[in-house]
Write a protein that binds this DNA or RNA. Structure first.
Lengths: 220, 220
DNA sequence: GATGTTTCTGAAAATTTGTTCACCTGTCAA
DNA sequence: TTGACAGGTGAACAAATTTTCAGAAACATC
């Protein structure tokens, strides 16, 4: 693939950052302002170049409408033992994002996310279906879900969705986010900890579901 | 939070789907066409309603520019369950990427990645450090690593790096990628399966390390 | 120095898009 | 019955945005 010029790369990065932060694409004029071009056509030309080089797809006539190629960069290192990385097609992209904080999987705990947010990185892979962009990541604190194989220090990915009986949900109780299994029984709703040593929880009347825990990640 | 009407919900869903599939927002006229409204103002009113109800944020004057709240309003049994997603700062991005295929964690198995590559999605989060871009994802097949809590169907993220004694590595043997623990003992290198029922493996002389398994992911 | 390519300027045209105004229709509760 | 309100039509307007056109400046290449 033809290489990008410095400015083209910068513009591409800016567009990426813009859409990641604000959730919508910048207009040509936004880019013009950012790079202090005197003419919109300067941007226009760069966008054409980016499209010709295959990293960007414009939607003709539509405002703030693009499709963008995922980041690509390859360079492999040598190791003592022979090292052979994956082929280009196997490259996975990572992106730095906001990390929502910690979740109490045990008894109610303070939520780290109340203050400053840190950033984390997660690879791009998990299931073939499209994952909703409203998902977020939480670090698990506590051990109330160990019977579901979710342990202290793990990271769970919370996605929006209809909570069903048996789902593991991130629930907000008294301002605390907790991880529990949702049990619907006899018209009542319970939050159940997955730990034999914990008492059965009482039914809850009002409940804020932040989302469904769909993926668990563990650092080795 | 005020409840959404059926049409409002449908429009919100359509917008979500549109941005998820095409990566840019629909215009008011796109929505109009989708729902066969005779007037753009019908859409306009609904968008105003959605904004007033707090699930959508419009950017005044900007085309195809919105911020959207996570999915809304679940109800289960007769208990009130409010849905409240994370704040804007907690949103995590996902990206579609290549998926390297399957890895044999048991006895040598064929590698699915030999042929076509499929795409997967993974959230963005895992550790505070920056992850090298040469990483890739593999689906685990087999059960030889169950004692290390890596099971059939899990996804492991392989990163490049110096393989040390005790690391779990993705190793290429006879054209097959396998997942094993690397043991250095008395100047020799062994690949050890983490399963009491499996025999200790023989030492290997030549070995291609594809990378180190640093993260395990599991779908719930 | 000549030459071609990339990058940019400046202005204007064409189109898309959000927004407003006036008015109609049914529903539901006071 | 009346009034409020959600939901809709139809047309027009104003703004935002993309796109085009002609040409200048910078810059490497021969």
């Amino acid at each position: 693939m033809e290489a990008l010029t410095k400015k083209q790369q910068a513009i591409l990065d800016y567009m990426r950052q813009h859409v990641a932060e604000l959730s919508y694409w910048p207009s040509i004029r936004d880019i013009q302002a950012k790079f202090r071009f005197a003419s919109t056509n300067a941007v226009f030309g760069h966008l054409q170049a980016l499209e010709r080089k295959g990293v960007l797809q414009r939607i003709p006539g539509a405002a703030r409408a693009y499709k963008i190629a995922p980041e690509v960069s390859v360079d492999l290192a040598e190791t003592v033992i022979r090292y052979e990385g994956p082929s280009d097609e196997q490259i996975v992209n990572f992106e730095e994002v906001k990390f929502a904080g910690a979740i109490a999987a045990g008894l109610p705990d303070y939520t780290e996310s109340s203050g400053v947010l840190s950033t984390m990185q997660v690879p791009i892979a998990a299931g073939s279906r499209r994952r909703p962009p409203e998902s977020f990541a939480l670090r698990v604190r506590g051990d109330s879900m160990i019977d579901a194989d979710i342990n202290d220090g793990d990271t769970v990915i919370i996605e929006p969705g209809q909570p069903k009986h048996g789902d593991i949900v991130a629930a907000l109780i008294d301002g605390e986010t907790t991880l529990k299994r949702l049990i619907k029984q006899g018209g009542k709703v319970f939050l159940k900890a997955e730990n034999k040593n914990y008492p059965e929880l009482r039914p809850v009347n009002e409940l804020v579901i932040q989302g469904l825990a769909k993926t668990v990640m563990r650092r080795i």
